[in-house]
Design a protein around this nucleic acid. Sequence first.
RNA 1: GUGGAUGUAGCUCAAUGGCGGAGCCCCUGGUUGUGGUCCAGGUGGUUGUGGGUUCGAGUCCCAUCAUCCACCCCA
Length: 425
Amino acid sequence: MNARYHRLKGTRDIFLEEVERWRWCEEVWARVLGRFGYGEIRTPIIEPTALFLRSVGAGTDIVDKEMYTFETRDGGESLTLRPEMTASVVRAYLENGLQRQPGTLKFFYMGPMFRHDRPQAGRYRQFHQLGVEAIGSASPVLDAEVIQLAMSLFDAVDATGLLVRVNSIGCRECRPPFLDDLKAFLTARIDEVPPAFRARIDTNPLRLYDAKDDGVLALLAGFRPITEALCSACREHHAVVLDTLARLSVPVQPDPTLVRGLDYYTRTTFEITAGSDRKQSSVAGGGRYDHLVEQCGGPPVPAVGFSIGIERTLLHLGDEPVDPQQSRQPAVDVFVACLGRLAEQSGLELAGLLRGFCRVEVDTTGRAVKTQVKSAVLRRARLLLTIGAEELEQDMVRMKDLGTGDQTAVARSRLLAAVREVLEG
RNA sequence: GUGGAUGUAGCUCAAUGGCGGAGCCCCUGGUUGUGGUCCAGGUGGUUGUGGGUUCGAGUCCCAUCAUCCACCCCA
């Protein structure tokens, strides 16, 4: 309240126990991803604006009104804070000549994304995603593996009660005719379309499917679903995806009304939602993008990927936003209480030895001993070392086992062994 | 971009238009220097900000900002 500067709207500070929670997820996920053969990729969080215009697509909400775009100081270049990372991965893929790598290239990434939305529960302007991109295979079996991977990631952090919806939105051949038919269908019934949605009929009719308006949905229910308009190749692809998922026992729900907000998807799209009553229930989304690499100036290379919203996943896991008042500082094994400047210096020397094998906090606050001991307990320390004038004089420290309450005087020359004995015995 | 709610101590909240408080947290003390309890004391505030009404505004009015929630969209 009396802070002079404030965090920007839609951003968050993550610290103390919450950041430990994040790191736990990150480590669990990295291990699972490794087992699926994915390696990490890190790309800059700023890219030329044009990259996102071409990939995400003009006409999408992301590009039209949500990007953090700015000009360089010399005014020569338009840059954008990445709103998603698929485009960056594709750019890096091409820029580094990775198409020369044998087989399918599988990358994962974790990091902040930026979208200038109005913040809300589970929605931030800087949010974090874990994502994967598998570049170089058109196989529908890969689509299924990618979806299986997504579920494995949720499973690994004990996220349950998730629903996977899968759809195919066709390809360059079969989608345009479907969209024309859909436009014609809706235009003929324009009176039944609420005014707020009419503009979308021309710009992006497919996205009417995720309108939450009952009238619109009822209208669309009377139209032939896209899955019945697919060409034979897309139909086959979709069938194999669903068949593979069934064989892998990954429960999914085919949903012909599922569309996604990015332009580059072809064929398979999917979305994973948390079945809670919360509105921001979408925790992951992805799909196949067979033309994006080519569109970014490369050869025609098919690919598939998805991203998981980390904040939303944690929200679904029931993690409350951490209350700084209730949160504890990191645990240590040994806490050194010091009385006076000389004791603090001495404590630091000891810590230097002990830190070779355990976690040590040296208290340099100058507070009352009682208070320092309390801190030791709060830090979940196993051992308390106390150094004061007497100990300095006699070249020893008091060592207390905070579990048993036993305290002994230990000569400094023996301390390393004594600490080790308690911690490792 | 649209709508709703809320802004008082670090946190959770009181205070009829009349001296800004409590609990928690933090710090100190309670026989030289030792455990989440207990007791005593203490630090901490431009009542989000700026105007207005009034003898007098935390309280009423206007504006503004911020946060939260929802629409929209998405992760």
